[in-house]
Design a protein around this nucleic acid. Structure first.
Lengths: 139, 139
DNA sequence: ATAATCCCTATAGTTAACTCTAGGTCAAGT
DNA sequence: ACTTGACCTAGAGTTAACTATAGGGATTAT
């Protein structure tokens, strides 16, 4: 007999709540998970692996409805290999774009860190104000 | 007289809608924007710059309520320099964590690209099934 | 055998971040 | 004077992704 896991075990492993897993199932992301006669879900290791791929797609910002299309394609077999390949290529481009975006964000954040470090040391933000015309006439 | 911009000009420049800008204002993110006697918003260049920082914070995943705290601190002056510095340091750590996360995501995505490339070339996903015990007895 | 603890469904509620509508003001052009 | 188009507010509606509740069934520990 193949080892199976309960919904709460899977939730713990994937850092999700039981609610979330049942919600995913309702949305059609887990058509592969089998049940006991009385309806309790039995997760196989391969189901957990599939959920990890779902989590990966989610972390690229893909909405659940699109992830469902992918799951449907998986159920449809080899005739959808091209769609699935195209989808991952597109995801790759999307993640690359996000990385670029994050780099730009990081530059601004780091600039602000320096800005506030300097201001803190001076005790005032005025240090950054362009008051450079401030040449006293006397002295 | 200093040049000012209308809400729709600013929206176009920042790739936001006027709805969104008014929403931000309602949420307290733009207390610095001045108005004409009849209530029309007049954006200065410095206001646009501030909005770019807000967009930057948003892109780190910071919720609007927290961004509002930052804006409030800015209005409070030098007494809040430490909070603001701490906030940017924390944002930096957060962006770093996101970058790490994205890298891991990218690895999985790239692995899947290869997986589907191979499957496409073979015309079937079966190529990846571990049927390696498949040694015919005869021949 | 019975209480505790898991599991289930269906459905309602929540939250964030918009997005839109209705009804009105105001300034510029014809 | 009047139409056009940009501006305004208040408030309702939307969407995604959960999150929680109510009511009930099954399994395990005492």
């Amino acid at each position: 007999m193949m080892k199976t896991y309960s919904i709460s075990e899977v939730a713990k492993e994937l850092n999700l709540t039981v609610y979330t897993l049942r919600y995913y199932d309702k949305e059609g992301l887990m058509p592969f998970v089998e049940r006991t006669a009385s309806g309790t879900r039995l997760f196989k290791q391969s189901d957990i692996d599939a959920l990890k791929v779902i989590e990966c797609l989610k972390s690229t910002g893909m909405p659940i409805k699109e992830i469902k299309s992918f799951i449907d394609w998986c159920s449809d077999g080899d005739s959808t290999l091209q769609q699935r390949y195209d989808m991952f290529i597109e995801r790759k481009a999307c993640v690359n774009a996000q990385m670029e975006e994050l780099k730009k964000t990081m530059e601004v954040i780091e600039h602000k860190c320096l800005y506030y470090k300097t201001a803190l040391e001076a005790g005032t933000e005025d240090i950054h104000k362009k008051n450079k015309i401030e040449i006293p006439i006397t002295e």
